[in-house]
């Protein structure tokens, strides 16, 4: 706790935290540790990138964060909730209301328009149709896709589909996006547009955890974590905007 002008300020709890959390597959001599134990806190509004070679635990980390898998040791919390103490139903609800996923293959349903795709998670959550559509339109607007809301995925470019996927991940109250190589199929300029978009969402208070192989995409994040053999071996933060040093390449 810190004090500002004599007032005690409660630090905001992290939206996502790994408290010595890890995942081991199998038991006995055949047990394979996929992740951890790791300690990671992600605060609301943060953009965190996770890098590391194949098999370093990146996808496991994302699955645990998204409550798709359970840690075998330690605790994973989302918005303060210990995921292991929640019932399966409560976990599913948390996933629908709080967490959006974006994968490389996007998983947009081809038979639904952009708007219907974005509204779907809210409808599944029991939100009245009209309200779900309104929220979806708002989310599409934030990614400048409201104009194309009634197009089907097949009639959109790769970059536009990606925007729709981002809108769906952040529809309604969803505050945490877990993204696994979301720019894999895009050319570099479009990939950078997506990073700019994620950056903007974080600057507006949403949170992104991005798994990527691409260092230049990772460099859009506030923090980059390097995983190796299931552990965080390194972490870099973006230098603060107040630093005025001119970046020079090695001469």
């Amino acid at each position: 706790m810190s004090e500002v002008d004599g007032q005690a300020i409660e630090p905001q709890p992290p939206i996502l935290s790994f408290e010595d959390a890890g995942r081991v597959h199998g038991t006995g001599p055949k047990a394979v540790r996929a992740l951890g134990p790791v300690r990671i806190d992600v605060r609301a509004g943060e953009f965190v990138a996770v890098m590391g070679p194949s098999g370093s635990g990146k996808s496991t980390l994302l699955s645990l964060a998204g409550a798709l898998d359970q840690p075998t040791d330690g605790t994973v919390r989302v918005q303060g909730w210990d995921l292991s103490t929640l019932s399966a139903g409560a976990r599913a609800a948390l996933r629908r209301r709080t967490i959006g996923f974006v994968f490389q293959d996007l998983n947009l349903l081809p038979g639904l328009t952009a708007l219907e795709n974005v509204a779907l998670p809210l409808e599944l959550d029991g939100c009245p149709l009209r309200e779900a559509r309104e929220e979806a339109l708002g989310s599409l607007e934030r990614v400048q896709m409201d104009r194309l809301a009634h197009r089907f995925p097949d009639d959109l470019s790769g970059g536009e589909q990606q925007r729709v996927a981002v809108a769906r991940a952040f529809v309604g109250p969803r505050a945490l996006m877990l993204a696994d190589e979301p720019t894999g199929a895009l050319d570099s300029v479009t990939g950078e547009m997506v990073m700019r978009l994620l950056r903007k969402q974080c600057d507006a208070g949403r949170t992104v955890v991005l798994v990527t192989h691409d260092a230049s995409h990772a460099s859009w994040a506030d923090r980059v974590l390097f995983l190796k053999d299931g552990l965080v071996v390194d972490e870099t933060r973006t230098p603060s905007a107040s630093s005025t040093a001119t970046p020079l390449p090695d001469a």
Binding site: R199, T238, A241, S243
Partner: peptide, 21 residues
């Protein structure tokens, strides 16, 4: 290798920040 990667990543983050601005 690890030290260098950290330093280069930091440099990359700085370039990206400058590009944003």
């Amino acid at each position: 290798l690890q030290n260098q990667r950290t330093a280069t990543m930091r440099r990359l983050q700085e370039y990206t920040r400058h590009r944003r601005e």
